[in-house]
Amino acid sequence: MLGLMLVQMSSMRDALAEALLELGSKDQRIVVLGADTSVSIKTSLFADRYPDRFFNVGIAEANMIGIAAGLALAGKIPYVSTYSAFVPGKCLDQIRNAVAYPNLDVKIVSSHGGVSVGPDGASHQTVEDVAAMRAIPHLRVILPADAPSTRVLIEESWRTPGPFYIRLSRPSVPEVYSSRPDLKVGHVKVLKEGTDVAIIACGVMVNAALEAGESLAKEKISAEIVDCHTLKPLDADTIVGVARKTGGIVTAEEQNIIGGLGSAVAESTSSSYPVPISMVGVRDTFGESGEYKELMAKYGLTSKDIVRAAKKLVASR
C-alpha cells in the first residue's frame, strides 16, 4: 500500500518544535532548556516566542538536568533537549538522582539518536542510550517512528506526570502516519495484521518494518507489524498476544541489541509465552562517519535485514 503512495518526508525536530510551541501556549508551566544546540534542534523557536520560559545553559548538560529538576520541584514542566550523545551521555547521574529517583516531571527529549546521525561519527552517535535509560526506575522511554507520532507523543508526555526519555533521530524520515495518529504512552500500535511472523519495531525502524512487510507479502509470508514507540512501560499484554498469534518475533531497533527493544520483548515473553526472537539492531559496536543510508546498510538496519531475519525465523519452524 505504502509503496504506491507518494512518501511524505518530515523532520522529528520540526515536530518537537511545533509541539512545544503549542504546549507553551496552553500551559504556562512549560519551560524549555537548551545546551547550545537549540538552533539545531529548533527549540530556539520556543525561545523566540517565550523568551522568559527558555533557558540556554551553554555546553553544560549536567547543570541543565539539575536546573530542570529544580524547576520541576518548583512546579514547572521542563522539556530539556540536546543531542542524545550528551543527554544522557554526559549526565546519567543527574538523570538518575535528580530526576528519576524523585520521580519529577522532567521531559528529556534527545535528538540525533542512533547511528543515523551520519557523518559526525561515533562520538555523536548513540547505541547505548536506550538500554541505559530503560534500566533507570520511574523513567518512561519513548522512540517515535516519525514526525506526526513525535508530535503526539510529546503531547502525551505533557499529559502524563513523571519523567520521560524521548529519543528522536536526526534525518527527515518517511511519515508512517499520514495524519495525527492515536498513540498512547504504554500501548503499542499494530500497523498491520499478520499471522506468520511479527515485526516489532521502534523509532526510524518502524518504516523499515513496513517496507519489510510488503516484501514478505510478495513471498506469501504474512507479517504483523507493530510500532512499539513506548519501550517502557512496555505493552507486555499486547506483545505476548502477538507472540501467541504469530509464533515468532523479529525486533528492529536503531541501537545496541543489548538492553534495547529486543531485550524488552524477550523479558516480557520469556516467562509467559516464549517464542523465537530475532533481533535486528546494532550488534554491540560503535558507529562511524558516513551518510545516513550508508550507515543503516552497513550496520544491518534496513528493511532487507528485517526480511532476512523474518524468513530465517519462519523457515526454522
Binding site: V31, D52, A62, G70, K76, D93
Partner: peptide, 24 residues
C-alpha cells in the same frame, strides 16, 4: 526539598527553583 545524595547537583537544582521563583 531535594535528594542530594550524589554530590555536585544541588546548586543546579537550587538555580532551577530560583528561576521558577522569578518566572512566577
Amino acid at each position: 526539598e531535594f535528594p542530594g545524595g550524589s554530590l555536585g547537583i544541588g546548586l543546579s537544582a537550587a538555580i532551577g527553583m530560583a528561576l521558577a521563583g522569578k518566572i512566577d
